[in-house]
Design a protein around this nucleic acid. Structure first.
Length: 451
DNA sequence: AACTAATCCAACCGCAGTACG
DNA sequence: TCGTACTGCGGTTGGATTAGT
């Protein structure tokens, strides 16, 4: 990150540039005092800093306007105060905020909103301007990344509605959705994206998380199990949702009509932004999905998309968000609506190993089918003909996928995401109740834009 | 290497509150 | 009570730097 070197960079620059006096933001707008003295604007020089520092050392803070009168410093009192407060006063910290400080800022902002000065009072050595800049940068960054402004465990005490477009002191709960984009790669089967906001913001109870793929014990449990779809617990009854606050569930296309047509496309983008958390080689498709090569790139049609939404440490849990379509009855109500499917556990109460893989596998096959394929050879994992070597390769790939420390590693990306968003890995998948699932469902539906 | 976009952050502006004559 | 000066706060600007293409 760029460091301006405290007050020296621009000052030195100003001096080097001849100290024209209007090399700052307000070119040519120097104020003129009543006695005709021209008040300087723009970056401070080291000489000016010295004058100001000496004056404060002798006379103490305050009486800022008198500085200009008594020292001849061509700065208004306001500028002097600001310079002193933000750069010259002792015990100022410089440099990045520590993680603790960042956490404090977030917590304070959740409590008091844009009260920078009050927040600065809680952070020794930090200025309101610094905090304000940090927060504004954070807003932009989080928006860009499609991440929630507040971590899950911090709940703003203010209004639930965003006011950030106007002058106010309300904390920004929600990030405005950037223009939706789709991060696709020429050879990828899927688009992996993150939502514009976390569902644990104002849109739903903070403790609610709709997305879970439970604990994966071992890559050995990684094989497709056709029975799984019929043994998983049923999704919650959509019609039981409160119609006052929830749009009616979106019907799936008729059984005879492939639901693919309703999928997001460049003309029908989902309301979430793209984040390149997961690079193209995310799911070793060249191996698992190598038969794609026979049928072109299904992604070219943009009729198939998975959203992969990490919410907790990937080593144990992964949240999968499916915004695609499926003819599978199990997923139908959710997938056709572009809804989140809250994976919980296998019906037998086990940890649900292989659900993600199963989902991807199935989704892939559906996509191939939707593109006129479907007669190709089933992946070995699907038809049960995988050899020991196949399995070992699979395990190796998956192990890489999860554990690789490289920059394209999904595990890294997810961990980064978790760290950045302050997500906790503590919540157990089993803690997700059907009620929460329904709330999540209603929430996603209320976001609209999905077919 | 050159150009552009994105980011950072110092410094500005306007407004509001307060003190004081 | 009013007017003025001072101070503090929050929002905005734009130059410098860095990152990306």
């Amino acid at each position: 990150m760029m460091m301006m070197g405290g007050n020296n960079q621009m000052s030195a620059q100003s001096e080097d540039g001849g100290s024209s006096g209007d090399n700052g933001m307000s070119n040519g707008n120097n104020g003129v005092r009543g006695d005709g003295m021209v008040l300087k604007k723009g970056p401070w020089t080291t000489a000016e800093d010295a004058v100001l520092t000496e004056y404060v050392r002798v006379n103490g803070e305050g009486n800022w306007n008198s500085i200009q009168k008594n020292t001849g410093l061509a700065r208004c009192g306001k500028s002097c105060r600001l310079r002193w407060a933000n750069h010259l006063r002792p015990n100022l910290k410089k440099g990045h905020f520590s993680p603790q400080e960042e956490r404090t800022i977030i917590e304070l902002h959740a409590k008091m909103g844009n009260k920078w000065a009050r927040m600065a009072a809680q952070l020794p050595g930090r200025t309101d301007n610094e905090i304000k800049n940090y927060w504004n940068t954070r807003i932009k960054r989080r928006q860009r990344q499609g991440l929630p402004l507040y971590p899950r465990d911090i709940h703003p005490h203010y209004s639930q509605y965003p006011h950030h477009l106007h002058h106010n002191s309300q904390p920004q709960m929600l990030l405005p959705a950037p223009l939706p984009t789709t991060a696709t790669t020429a050879t990828s089967c899927f688009s992996f994206q993150t939502p514009i906001m976390s569902l644990h913001t104002s849109m739903m109870p903070s403790s609610l998380h709709p997305l879970h793929i439970p604990h994966r014990v071992s890559p050995l449990n990684f094989r497709y199990n056709p029975r799984l779809a019929t043994t998983m617990s049923s999704p919650p009854n959509l019609h039981s949702l409160n119609s006052d606050s929830t749009p009616p569930p979106l019907n799936s296309p008729s059984g005879s009509t492939p639901p693919i047509s309703s999928l997001p496309s460049p003309q029908n983008q989902p309301p979430f932004t793209t984040l390149p958390l997961f690079d193209y080689d995310f799911f070793h498709e060249k191996k698992r999905f190598k038969h794609d090569e026979n049928h072109g790139n299904i992604n070219n049609n943009n009729n198939f998309m998975l959203r992969f939404l990490p919410m907790e440490n990937y080593s144990n849990r992964v949240a999968l968000d499916v915004a695609s379509s499926s003819s599978n009855n199990l997923y139908q109500p959710y997938i056709d609506s572009g809804l989140f499917y809250p994976f919980k556990t296998d019906q037998d109460g086990s940890s649900g190993d292989g659900l993600l893989e199963d989902m991807l596998q199935e989704a892939h096959m559906l996509a191939v089918k939707a593109n006129g394929g479907g007669n190709e050879e089933m992946p070995k994992e699907m038809n049960g003909t995988a050899t020991q070597q196949d399995q070992e390769e699979e395990e190796e790939d998956y192990s890489k996928l999860i554990n690789d420390d490289g920059p394209t590693s999904m595990g890294m990306a997810i961990n980064e995401w978790c760290n950045d968003s302050g997500e906790s890995s503590e919540r157990q998948p089993s803690a997700i109740t059907d009620t929460e699932n329904q709330l999540a469902l209603a929430n996603v539906q209320s976001r609209g834009n999905f077919p």
